[in-house]
Amino acid sequence: MTSGPASTTVMRYFDMWNTGDTTIADQILHPAWVDHAHPEVTGPAAVKQAVQAIRAARPGLHFTVHTILGDSDLVAVVGSVGRPQQRTDSPGHLIWLVRLVDGLMTEMWTYQQNQPSR
């Protein structure tokens, strides 16, 4: 796993989702933030609202980061989503590509890596 400023920022983002502590959103998200999987959620204030709403609806939601690759303005994250007591709810890994500007997360794209059929 890569270790550096960009990967630390990205880890803090997933920690925010896991803990519900949105006080760090303004420290890690660029004002022009957009998650292309959820383009209706733009900017840190909208992310704070989304975290609170989703955690209220799915309190057991947990992001696990397996690997972070890169540590500049583009970072790839491989992880999964599930509950802490379960390995994962998804049939495969998720891959997030994150673009950073001035050390802040600016854009994110989400891709699902499905497990091969057996």
Rank of each mutant, 00 (worst) to 15 (best):
S117N: 11
I68H: 09
A53C: 01
A57F: 10
Q115W: 09
R83N: 12
S90V: 10
R99N: 10
Q27N: 15
A50P: 02
V81P: 01
N114K: 13
V75D: 04
E40N: 14
R83A: 14
D21W: 02
R87A: 13
R99V: 10
W33H: 10
H30F: 08
Q113D: 08
D35W: 02
T110Q: 10
A37K: 14
V81F: 06
S90D: 14
V10W: 01
A37C: 07
G4I: 01
T67E: 13
K48H: 05
V75E: 00
H36W: 13
S3K: 04
Q52E: 13
T9V: 03
Y13M: 05
A53S: 11
Q112I: 08
P31G: 04
L29A: 05
G70R: 12
T9K: 12
D15L: 01
G60V: 03
Y13C: 00
P31E: 04
M1A: 14
H66P: 03
A46S: 09
F63H: 11
G43N: 12
M105H: 04
I68M: 11
A32P: 00
W17F: 08
S90I: 10
V34Q: 14
V41K: 02
P91S: 04
W33N: 11
T106P: 00
M16Y: 04
Y111P: 06
E107S: 05
R87G: 06
S3C: 01
D35A: 12
R87E: 15
H38I: 13
L104K: 14
W96K: 01
